[in-house]
């Protein structure tokens, strides 16, 4: 509706752009996300150390994959003797859990269409739940500045790699993580993130199907239950027709 608004007022820019002020604002707005990311980064670093990764591998995983939930899940199926099947399971789990990035980056298209393509793709390399939330908030308010997303990406990325390193060394100090419930970090974080999503869901049947199928499949294989459950949920949502 505002697409054809002319820029004659000169007050607000209606074409997508990147501003330094926006970047700064994004960096500041990433601060509330930092405590959660910090705990999660420590947990991933500790899990990597306990799983038997070298320090370089732990840092490498955080710096190159840069997606905590999928890193944690890959660590759950980590093995000293990788087979092709185990590798495919790791790839499948990673694809399933990070498929949300596909949706988030799809969401950005109408907001920043027209920006320099290289800049857009470079910024999307660092896309996280937090920077998506910050970007979505700005764009929902009518902003066309991509700066907040870029500005949030920088401290989030640096913090993630740094806390992985700290967790790797500190985790070695905790001999039995399960004694303190630290092995439950992932399900607790995910359960918390699920609530607002489930609240917005139009129907619950697909979510119940996803959970049940995942439980059943998990009885037989270690790696594939997430992919199976998630696809079952999405497929059933696609196939159930809108109630007339």
């Amino acid at each position: 509706m505002e697409m054809h608004e002319t820029v004659e007022t000169g007050a607000a820019r209606t074409e997508p752009h990147v501003s330094r002020a926006g970047m700064w604002r994004g960096a500041v707005e990433s601060l509330p996300f930092q405590p959660g990311a910090l705990i999660f980064g420590l947990a991933v670093g500790a899990a990597a150390g306990q799983t038997g990764l070298t320090f370089a591998e732990a840092i490498g995983q955080s710096a190159i994959v840069y997606a905590g939930a999928s890193q944690m899940l890959t660590l759950q199926i980590w093995t000293p003797d990788w087979t092709l099947g185990a590798l495919l399971a790791a790839i499948g789990v990673t694809a399933a859990i990070n498929a949300r990035f596909l949706l988030m980056s799809a969401t950005f298209r109408p907001w920043i269409e027209g920006l320099d393509r290289r800049l857009v793709y470079f910024s999307l390399l660092f896309l996280t739940d937090a920077s998506f939330a910050i970007g979505a908030r700005h764009h929902a308010a009518g902003g066309r500045d991509h700066g907040p997303v870029i500005g949030a990406n920088i401290p989030l990325y640096l913090g993630w790699v740094a806390t992985t390193a700290i967790g790797f060394w500190a985790g070695a100090l905790v001999a039995h993580p399960e004694r303190y419930g630290l092995d439950l970090v992932l399900p607790i974080v995910f359960a918390t993130l699920t609530v607002p999503m489930a609240r917005r869901a139009k129907r619950f049947a697909p979510l119940i199907i996803a959970g049940l199928l995942a439980i059943i499949v998990s009885q037989f294989t270690a790696g594939w239950f997430i992919v199976a459950g998630a696809l079952a949920g999405a497929l059933s949502a696609a196939l159930i027709d809108e109630a007339a």
Binding site: R100, L103, A191, L207, L213, I226, G233
Partner: peptide, 12 residues
């Protein structure tokens, strides 16, 4: 439905 399905299929 995909994001919530992923989370629930992981947590449960």
């Amino acid at each position: 439905a995909l994001p919530a399905s992923i989370f629930i299929a992981t947590v449960a």
